[in-house]
């Protein structure tokens, strides 16, 4: 697309012309008074503007928590919607300070594209959605199918691998955003839509008749999704990482938005006290106020609360905790200790 060539060229020049942003992100964000956060173009439950035009969702909540920790105000966030293609350029060029957009932590993104994944907020895998009327019950029956995929994602590479490994053919229809993919899929221009399972569930929830579509049982990849920042500014990376860890640990220790004011007065659990700033100087070590995590937790509650509110079983998206339960409940969510 001509526009994106231009955008990339501008980004390239921006890399060329801008003074390097390494090691000063915190300062820049504080001076600006606003956190620039890269999110989806719109995926209900993860990141989408609500009826009032306010961004909300599971990924958006991470941005808000970081903004609250750094600036004390969860609404001081400028959301920049990015596609699978533009998210990395946006981060590399400094247009955004962090990305929280269903992004899979992979070797090349970490080491070759030079980004730093600060953790994992959703353990996911790639799946397939087909219309029920197609009568397909397994991904191995998809030989010859036309498949809608978002470009610039791990999805398109996994898909190629999966079909090659199973010695099947397919016809890829590359698409830029989830909204377009949905339109094409519903019009029958492709037989199958493939992306992360969570994305499929979120997309299906917005259909008029969600029951007419099935998710196939095969999960063909590991997609650990998490927020990311640029390589080279470890201080900033640490802030985002420990904000996320704080959200996860808070669930483990039972810190919720309901009892946080009370717990912030001080408790007899030293770990909670260290997290909430009544003991030790963890905020200062990060270069933040001592109540940084209190603010972050007040923004949207702990990890479990955020999950339930946006994508949990009580929402139309209806995702079970599964792998994303706390380690104490047999899941993989496990924050390193605040010590």
């Amino acid at each position: 697309m001509k526009k994106s060539v231009l955008a990339s060229a501008v980004a390239a020049t921006a890399i060329a012309a801008a003074g390097m942003a390494s090691a000063q992100t915190l300062q820049q964000v504080q001076d600006r008074g606003v956190l620039n956060c890269g999110v989806n173009t719109g995926l209900v439950g993860f990141a989408a503007p609500n009826a009032e035009g306010e961004w909300e969702g599971f990924d958006v909540a991470v941005c808000r928590a970081v903004a609250a920790a750094v600036l004390g105000d969860p609404s001081s966030v400028e959301f920049v919607s990015t596609t699978g293609k533009t998210r990395f350029t946006a981060l590399a060029s400094g247009e955004v300070d962090m990305v929280s957009r269903n992004t899979t932590w992979t070797f090349t993104r970490d080491n070759d594209l030079k980004f730093e994944f600060v953790g994992i907020n959703y353990y996911d895998g790639q799946g397939f959605m087909v219309p029920r009327a197609l009568g397909v019950s397994s991904a191995t029956e998809l030989d010859g199918a036309t498949v809608c995929i978002q470009t610039g994602t791990t999805t398109e590479l996994n898909l190629a691998d999966f079909f090659r490994a199973n010695n099947m053919n397919y016809d890829p229809v590359p698409i830029e955003t989830n909204a377009e993919a949905q339109q094409q899929y519903l019009a029958g221009a492709c037989d199958v839509y493939t992306t992360d399972m969570s994305g499929l569930a979120a997309t299906r929830a917005t259909f008029e008749a969600p029951g007419d579509h099935v998710l196939l049982p095969e999960v063909i990849s590991k997609e650990p999704l998490g927020p990311l920042v640029r390589h080279g500014d470890n201080e900033w990376g640490d802030i985002v990482r420990w904000t996320l860890n704080g959200l996860i640990a808070a669930e483990e220790y039972g810190i919720t938005s309901a009892n946080i004011d009370e717990l912030a007065q001080g408790t007899n659990n030293p770990e909670i006290n260290r997290m909430l700033g009544t003991e030790g100087n963890f905020g200062e070590i990060l270069g933040l106020e001592s109540d940084w995590l209190v603010n972050a937790l007040k923004a949207g509650g702990n990890y479990g609360e955020i999950f339930e509110r946006h994508i949990g079983e009580s929402t139309p998206i209806g995702l079970a905790r599964g792998l994303n339960a706390q380690w104490t409940d047999g899941g993989l969510m496990y924050s390193p200790p605040f010590r």
Binding site: S8, G84, L113, K114
Partner: peptide, 10 residues
């Protein structure tokens, strides 16, 4: 598009 994105060689 895809090559640029997957390799990061903008």
């Amino acid at each position: 598009g895809i090559t640029l994105n997957q390799t990061g060689r903008a």
